[in-house]
Design a protein around this nucleic acid. Sequence first.
DNA 1: TAGAAGTGTGTGCGCACGCACATTCCTACG
DNA 2: CGTAGGAATGTGCGTGCGCACACACTTCTA
Lengths: 145, 145
Amino acid sequence: MVQDTPDVAAWAALLRVHAALVPVLDRELQAAHGLPLTWYDVLLELNAAPGRRLSMGELGAAAVVSRTRVSRVVDQLAAAGLVAREANPDDRRSAYAAITEAGRKRLRAAAPTYLAGIQRHFTARMTAREAAVVATALEKVLSAD
Amino acid sequence: MVQDTPDVAAWAALLRVHAALVPVLDRELQAAHGLPLTWYDVLLELNAAPGRRLSMGELGAAAVVSRTRVSRVVDQLAAAGLVAREANPDDRRSAYAAITEAGRKRLRAAAPTYLAGIQRHFTARMTAREAAVVATALEKVLSAD
DNA sequence: TAGAAGTGTGTGCGCACGCACATTCCTACG
DNA sequence: CGTAGGAATGTGCGTGCGCACACACTTCTA
């Protein structure tokens, strides 16, 4: 449709899938658990981190949300009691964000909704082999420079 | 990293690739041709349409940009002389956006930059077979309901 | 040790974006 | 033929988002 070469077709399809699915998944998550996708992403990353905490810079690099935006999102999450700001004794410029028990509970409650949404809107439309190829191909793109 | 199942890995990788590459490609396009990615997308869709024009609703459905946003983007493009608003005699509610000759020229000039960026940042990191699988898999997702 | 350079973080500001609504017009139904 | 309902579009408004900058602190260098 957009261009004849399969390279461009892959990129164009990625853009469209993103534009089509992100709002849907975000709504589902927010309707079921009052949790924006941005919050979920940050909580997920914090929960998987060693010590269940990350500095702002690390969080900005790890999560999808940009480094600049992390400050404000963490503020919101802290106001909601889902994360706690902690000081870093070794580097007093740095600030940690640590997920709280309430945050973990909220994350665990929301996960099934999100995973089911991914399954229903995304992976159910392709074969398991295709999903695996998509994952490995896109991860190779991410590891670039 | 995020979750163990390959399904979620594919979706997570898609989110990250989008977040990483879109700003880069947008900057490249804007630096080389003063053309935001949104403008490029709209111009591309109009250029490929029958009669080189589309109604606002059709444009919103075809392009990545949302239907609501189309109005304002077309305003900007019209102010820049790259598209022209046309009336629809058959339905006076409807409004056409038609790409102008200046718009086509601008699009043709920018295309090599964009395509080279896609090639360099995206498809160069995977095999041709992987790119084909990514394209077909994601297009199947799009064709859902 | 004092100063310069570099790094991590937060914030004012402007732009992009979508929602909800008003407007205009078409269409179906009595 | 008139009216109710629906469809296509544009716009005020609030929110999300990133850039550029300021600030605090660390690290390097002479």
